[in-house]
Design a protein around this nucleic acid. Sequence first.
DNA 1: CAGCATCCGGATGGATACTG
DNA 2: CAGTATCCATCCGGATGCTG
Lengths: 112, 112
Amino acid sequence: MISTKWALLIIPLLAERPVRNNEFLRLIDGVSQKMLTQTLRELERYGLVERIDYRTVPPHVEYRLTPIGRSLNLVLVPIDDWAEKNFPKLLTAQQDFDRRQESEASVRTKPL
Amino acid sequence: MISTKWALLIIPLLAERPVRNNEFLRLIDGVSQKMLTQTLRELERYGLVERIDYRTVPPHVEYRLTPIGRSLNLVLVPIDDWAEKNFPKLLTAQQDFDRRQESEASVRTKPL
DNA sequence: CAGCATCCGGATGGATACTG
DNA sequence: CAGTATCCATCCGGATGCTG
């Protein structure tokens, strides 16, 4: 359920405050309208997010975390912290790994 | 990084003990050899998982968590707990949601 | 046993145009 | 503003066959 590209970005945002459709599009880099709606519907479906339509013109819709959604966010916070803390390590590990792969590739490519 | 279909299933398994390729295939329902290798390589790439090749015949390869991987698992445990605890709620929420969708659909379909 | 290479259908997701 | 609908290229991932 959270093993999806955008859910882990949406939920922490909603933990701060209610967010509107266009705000998401601005705040989450790279998400398309389609994927945003799809993910929000999914989260709504599981009762994690509540969609509030003020039925005004022009439309005003906001999304909030439900109590269950909030309880999920609580266990997600440590992951954010972990990610922030370990990001540099992950990056260098990745670069090292890729460098190793490259050198092996060149061995296979130029066996002379 | 963990927003991928199999990573969240692989890591907790490795937290228990080292696991071999075929064990994964047996223990993780639905994973294919291709996806398993792909995910393991990815985790290895970030330095979360270590691949140990005993260089025997027949081959014996095992995967372990690195210290960083272990620290990640630590923050993942609460998610597992959360999931187990809230699964019933999520399920009924989902069913309710789907039922609501259905009734709305029938309104749109037969407007007489 | 571990895992790579290839093929291939179906799902995914972006772009665009449109609606209330 | 908040979406839906459609089109369509891309990618994902399963199945199969093969290798050391």
